[in-house]
């Protein structure tokens, strides 16, 4: 028989509540694998957002805190400031991070808090039923932009990775996606690097993951992947926006 997929220790036995075609499950798994591989499960604390991933702590198998909407980076700051030895990550959606929590993420990044943020960008508010997010694409229809996002009225979608990369302090910023296996390998690498930099107490690290939301986009999972590749990826270009530790290493040589 073929290879069996072993469940990482960092994942619990619970079945997720996510809709068919949602990428939260894959991203959870990548994080869990990285934490297993780095053997840091027992001194990791996750911070859950408010959004579809509010129950993420049911699916992971290590310590977790649940934040108020958008405030996860502030809580992670609190943890890191009193327990710098813990590995801390926030797991946040685009409404949570780029809308209500914009201030918290910018200031945490700018202080160079040494935690990791996994930013799941699905271009919509999932949990509350598909309202417009700051990352919603131009002309994209949502329940609160029923005629499509009018960029003349509410501006262009925010590219969080680019925006944070404009700050001097944060050290590692990469945008990835999990739309297809070829991307997933890279995404995992990025998440791993983010955690390693944290363990080495180097910098704030931020991994954006471009995702899908078939339910609220009103598409099949297959169509969602196609739409994301055709529409999201050209705008949210993948790649490393900043890798200060690597640059410093190079310069040292």
């Amino acid at each position: 028989m073929g290879k069996t997929f072993l469940k990482p220790n960092s994942l619990s036995d619970n079945h997720t509540h996510y809709c068919p075609g949602c990428t939260h499950g894959v991203i959870h798994r990548l994080i869990a694998e990285v934490i297993d591989e780095l053997k840091i499960r027992k001194n990791t604390v996750g911070v859950a957002p408010v959004g579809c991933a509010v129950l993420a702590y049911n699916y992971f198998n290590f310590d977790f805190q649940e934040a108020a909407h958008g405030r996860a980076p502030a809580m992670a700051t609190g943890i890191k400031r009193v327990r710098p030895d813990l590995n801390v990550f926030t797991y946040q959606g685009d409404g949570d991070l780029a809308s209500i929590g914009m201030s918290e993420i910018i200031h945490s990044a700018n202080r160079g808090e040494k935690f990791t943020t996994i930013f799941v960008n699905n271009a919509v508010y999932g949990m509350t039923g598909g309202q417009m997010a700051p990352t919603t694409m131009p002309n994209q229809k949502t329940t609160t932009s029923p005629f499509g996002r009018d960029v003349k009225d509410v501006g262009m979608p925010i590219k969080m990775a680019n925006l944070l990369a404009a700050l001097q302090t944060p050290g590692y910023i990469e945008r990835t996606t999990v739309l297809k296996p070829k991307y997933i390998v890279k995404a995992k690498k990025a998440i791993k690097k983010a955690f390693i930099y944290q363990m080495e107490k180097k910098c704030f690290s931020f991994v954006e993951v471009v995702s899908t939301c078939p339910t609220n986009w009103g598409m099949t999972p297959q169509d969602s992947i196609k739409w994301a590749e055709d529409t999201l990826l050209p705008y949210y270009e993948l790649g490393v926006f900043k890798d200060t530790p690597k640059m410093e290493e190079k310069n040292a040589k």
Partner: peptide
């Protein structure tokens, strides 16, 4: 700002305000 159980007000007014020349803005928080 959207929140259950009242998001339908925003969803309703997102359609209705333009019809009557009104204004709706979804704030960031």
């Amino acid at each position: 700002y959207p929140i259950t159980p009242q998001s339908e007000v925003a969803e309703y007014l997102a359609k209705r305000m333009p019809e009557v020349g009104g204004m709706f803005l979804q704030g960031e928080s």
